[in-house]
């Protein structure tokens, strides 16, 4: 396989709260983003998926560990190499109401990165290119949109502008952070389809961050999913394997808990009961596996003492990994009976 476009190696990220409290937001994250793939980061709020996306984009620096772009340490990139990284990796933020500057017209919003990265030579060229980008994201007729301000557009239209803005630098990797969660159901799929066709057209790699497993499944059917829990990746593998045959206890519980838009099916679905509904705080993480106090398959003396590493388990496809000691030892999971 060719070199991954982005490689994260042993990433830790902590945030300080006040003087004494350190919050470990990400711990020991190693993951490759392969060229042209779609990788979904899935998890509940507080699992660190957005922080991870920002680290990939270079908007945050890891506390320790390295991010490699095309094999080069991002922290050591200088001059034209750094600019190239910045151009090649773009992010689409979640909230189109907050991520567009209300004081700039759409034309300005799109022209700025075009000029900054010298994608065009003049204001008039920038405007031309902005118009092209707007028609690429189906905001037509372009003349009706280009001189408007964000507040004159609907949420769906704004998110299209955000996508167009990310396209200005002709990126190779797009980090889409909950890019459709703020728009209505009926137009969500339209946005995703547009993103997918842009990807084909422009040979892009996509990292899609979402809390919605069904959406991840739809988008990355031929891609991969990484499931995150409390700052760590607990399972990673091909989407079809993760969704149809989840391995990590957390992934299993999550999939069993999701209501589905099919009355008979969703009512017959068996829900796996957690041992505890409380999510531990990041500042008071339990010892061993962070999921053990809630895990229905908890193994005393193992799960509460040793932190599990992501590795392949005997029953898994060779390209998949899970962070669960009983599984990686090849043991059958058995319900814990206190």
């Amino acid at each position: 396989m060719s070199e991954p476009i982005l490689k994260l190696d042993g990433i830790h990220k902590t945030f300080k709260k006040g003087r004494d409290v350190t919050i470990p937001v990400l711990q020991d994250i190693s993951v490759n983003v392969n060229r042209l793939e779609i990788l979904c980061l899935v998890g509940e709020s507080g699992c660190g998926k957005t922080t991870l996306g920002k680290l990939m984009t270079g908007l945050l620096k890891p506390s320790s560990g390295k991010v490699y772009f095309e094999g080069k340490d991002v922290d050591k990139l200088r001059g034209s190499e750094f600019k190239r990284y910045r151009r090649a990796v773009q992010i689409i933020h979640q909230d189109p109401y907050a991520s567009l500057n209300p004081a700039h017209t759409i034309s300005n919003t799109l022209s700025f990165p075009l000029l900054r990265h010298k994608m065009v030579r003049s204001q008039s060229q920038a405007r031309e290119r902005a118009a092209e980008l707007l028609s690429m994201v189906d905001l037509t007729p372009v003349g009706d949109i280009i001189d408007k301000y964000p507040h004159q557009l609907s949420g769906g239209q704004r998110q299209r502008v955000s996508i167009a803005r990310a396209m200005t630098t002709e990126p190779e990797l797009i980090i889409a952070d909950e890019a459709v969660s703020m728009v209505d159901v009926s137009i969500r799929i339209g946005l995703l389809k547009m993103l997918l066709s842009l990807r084909t057209e422009m040979n892009m790699t996509i990292v899609f961050i979402t809390h919605d497993l069904a959406l991840a499944k739809y988008l990355a059917w031929y891609g991969r999913i990484a499931v995150m829990y409390l700052g760590r990746i607990v399972e990673i593998g091909r989407t079809q394997d993760v969704v149809m045959n989840p391995q990590h206890p957390y992934t299993r519980v999550l999939l069993s808990a999701i209501p589905e838009a099919d009355p008979e099916r969703t009512r017959q679905k068996e829900h796996i009961q957690l041992r505890s509904e409380d999510i531990p705080r990041l500042t008071e993480l339990p010892p061993g596996c962070a999921f053990h106090p809630r895990c229905p398959w908890y193994v005393p003396g193992v799960c509460d003492t040793t932190i599990p590493r992501l590795s392949n388990a005997p029953d898994m496809p060779s390209d998949a990994q899970v962070a669960c000691i009983p599984l990686t030892r090849g043991e059958e999971l058995a319900f814990y009976d206190a």
Binding site: V185, S186, R188, A214, Y218, W221, I258, E260, A261, D262
Partner: peptide
């Protein structure tokens, strides 16, 4: 327009 977990692609 709603993706379903129980279906393939």
């Amino acid at each position: 327009s709603v993706p379903r977990l129980d279906r393939g692609q």
